[in-house]
Write a protein that binds this DNA or RNA. Structure first.
Lengths: 240, 240
DNA sequence: TTGACTAACTTGTATATACAAGTTAAAATA
DNA sequence: TATTTTAACTTGTATATACAAGTTAGTCAA
């Protein structure tokens, strides 16, 4: 499986929370108990628990123990660090991806800025529509630096680009910055989406970076207003 | 100052990034160099660096070092773990808080659900409008469990409730869950905000928890469409 | 000159120890 | 009985050590 101890413990505990073996409000075993269960050191257990805590799955309480939080994070597809495919599986709703455009191009001014590329470099442009329960809800416009992604096909775009990038190309996707705001809808939105009467769309600008902090993808994800939903979890740092 | 070593190192490095002493793209000193500078152990330095990394300020690259990221996180006021006052200071735009309502009440069905309280318990209800550059942009409806917050005044609500809660009442605000979505605007929205022609508002539902995982505040923050903006930073976990 | 190797750096993981500090429940005391 | 104390738990912080693994630049040999 995983050669990384604390990550595989994190994963194991996470799946126990998601399966309901550890239920919200319940205490999970103490650090010392987990040390025995997983036959490892306390620091390794603590690394796993801190990850769970950061992501909002547990709350550690000094002197008492760690309790499971009730933070169902059924995020809506935001097209970012979690792929649409991964999310669709969690949502359980019938969904489908339609590839509307797939081509290489030279960057215009906007793209040069967003993707930090020069006019000579080639860019992949992928336009996909996400259909959920029969309705065209999301328009995803992806732009990849061809330097990082030499080849793409309609088939790959329909399945999961991320799976291809990580498994085939061995790209190490590391972090993303997302910007949310609302915009008036364009002709393109109206062409590709079932917009109903809505005059605006929620736009998510997504900048995705590799391991070495190089920007390799820019995505604009345009959501029909009424179907947009996003859940965020944040901790406050006290400098006490 | 701070009796916590790794947090004060985190804070020190963070302020150096924000002040531009460490600039985007630049390498910060190596862990061993920081060990000498701060006269501490490597593990303590690593705790501080990991915090910076989680929050999107640096990228650690194995074998190379840590570089400063260019993630200007000038978040828009979302009324959550960062108070409006803290954000307004960063934004630098002239802003003002107007307290429109301040009263205690018994919870209705919706509030009972959102705040996890019984019908007998008392609730503080605070309605505030955030004015930015002369326009009424955000409507904040805060609900506090009176069990945790016995007293509130108009003066406190105008300044900063969080400052009062943390400094005076010694409440330890720990984490929050936020839900974003778009709703049709209500009579109340039209009454309190300068809505222009917009028919919808961005709604942020905010659940704020204390140290011991008890829910003590529920906030509904209603933003005028065109002024809403949110920035998110996320890392991908690889189970390698 | 070119290429392979090596040494000196970097961060990542795992372990062990010590003590601080908050919680809880049982035991001792008034 | 009521209160205080204590002992045994919990998590939090700080330190030290060892080795793994990726990067880089200089050295050495072909």
């Amino acid at each position: 499986m995983s050669e990384n101890k604390y990550l595989s413990i994190y994963n194991d505990l996470l799946s126990k929370i998601e399966k309901g073996i550890f239920k919200p409000g319940m205490k999970i075993p103490s650090e010392n108990q987990l040390v025995e269960q997983y036959e490892t050191s306390r620091e390794t257990i603590r690394k796993a628990l801190n990850l769970l805590s950061e992501h909002g799955y547990i709350q550690k309480i000094k002197g008492k123990g760690s309790i499971v939080l009730d933070v169902r994070k059924f995020d809506f597809p935001i097209s970012g660090l979690i792929s649409f495919k991964e999310l669709a599986q969690k949502l359980g709703k019938p969904s489908r991806t339609i590839v509307e455009q797939l081509e290489t191009m030279k960057p215009d001014e906007t793209l040069k800025k967003h993707l930090h590329v020069t006019a000579r470099e080639d860019i992949w442009k992928v336009i996909r529509v996400r259909e959920i329960e029969g309705e065209r809800i999301i328009l995803d416009k992806d732009f990849f630096n061809k330097k990082f992604v030499p080849f793409l096909s309609k088939d790959i775009c329909e399945r999961s680009i991320y799976e291809y990038l990580e498994k085939e190309l061995q790209l190490k996707i590391s972090f993303a910055k997302k910007e949310f705001f609302v915009e008036e809808c364009t002709e393109e939105d109206r062409m590709y989406l079932n917009l109903k009467q809505y005059t605006h769309v929620v736009v998510v600008r997504n900048y995705v970076y590799l391991d070495d902090a190089s920007l390799f993808q820019y995505t604009e994800s345009r959501h029909r207003l009424d179907k947009f939903r996003f859940v965020d979890f944040a901790r406050r740092i006290h400098l006490h």
